[in-house]
Amino acid sequence: MVLQLRGVTKTYETGDGPLPVLRGVDLGLNAGETLALTGESGSGKSTLLHLVGGLDTPDAGTIEVAGANVGAMGDEARAALRRGTVGVVFQQFNLIPALDVAANLSFQARLAGHDEPAHWVDLAERLGLTPFLRRYPEQLSGGQQQRVAIGRALAARPRLLLADEPTGNLDETTADAVLTLMLDLVRESDTALLMVTHSDRVAERMARRIHLRLGKVA
């Protein structure tokens, strides 16, 4: 099992007092499995994704990624987790504007110690990016930028890929094409995929679906 959550809770302090966001979440995800995380705004989806990615820590419960307890890690260990074991794709593409497509694709791989040009060149070809390797993010369409973001995350050969509304900024046709490529690449690499989405169409293409309601699995 690549991802295991047991009794995960998270509360934030606000001007109006404590705000419970997650109230004891349990879930598991195996290698090569795809899971859609759905729920209304404010249900805790993005918070859960941030906790799994080590961008925040839970108040209680355990989060294990590839057998490592994320909540018990220090900042340096969690950063190392994101460099190699966990890949992240956001709705906002978060590409490095000063780097061309080739450098964006190879950057994360080098950080993870997986500087394998043949791998990211193959990813670029699979994602239809080969003609654009020397272009910069501002010279690409939204769909092309999201393909670069997916390729960059997978170039590091992560065990787990986290995706937060990765096709939310794309038109329906482009979103379908990008999602198909992502699912194909995840399946071939045996990477586990946890995707936050508001779209029923997107969720239906995942192997499983979990719905969060008021911080709990409904």
Rank of each mutant, 00 (worst) to 15 (best):
M1A: 11
M1W: 05
L3C: 02
Q4D: 14
R6E: 14
T9I: 09
T9H: 10
T11H: 09
Y12S: 04
Y12M: 08
Y12R: 13
E13S: 13
E13D: 07
D16W: 14
P18L: 03
L19G: 00
P20H: 01
R23Y: 00
G24Y: 00
L27Y: 14
G28C: 09
L29C: 00
L29W: 06
N30P: 02
N30V: 09
A31Q: 09
G32T: 02
G32M: 08
T34W: 01
L35G: 06
L37G: 01
T38L: 04
G42H: 13
K45M: 12
T47I: 09
G53N: 07
L55C: 07
D56H: 02
A60F: 02
G61T: 12
G61P: 08
I63E: 15
E64K: 03
A66D: 09
G67P: 11
A68W: 00
G71S: 01
D75R: 05
A79P: 00
A80H: 12
G84E: 00
G84Q: 03
F90I: 08
F90M: 08
F93P: 01
F93K: 03
N94R: 13
N94K: 07
L95D: 12
D100F: 10
A103E: 15
L105R: 03
A109N: 10
A109S: 06
A112T: 00
G113T: 01
H114P: 06
H119Q: 02
L123K: 12
L123F: 03
A124C: 09
A124T: 09
A124P: 03
E125F: 02
L127R: 03
G128M: 02
T130A: 12
T130G: 03
T130P: 00
P131C: 05
P131L: 04
P131K: 10
R134V: 04
P137M: 13
L140T: 12
G142Q: 13
G142F: 03
R147S: 06
R152Q: 04
R152G: 04
A153G: 03
A155R: 11
A156G: 07
A156S: 06
D164M: 12
G168H: 02
G168I: 06
N169L: 10
D171Y: 07
E172I: 12
T173M: 15
T174S: 05
A177C: 14
L179E: 06
T180A: 14
L185I: 02
L194M: 08
V196D: 15
V196C: 11
R201Y: 11
A207T: 09
A207K: 07
R208F: 12
R208A: 11
R209Y: 11
L214Y: 14
K216R: 15
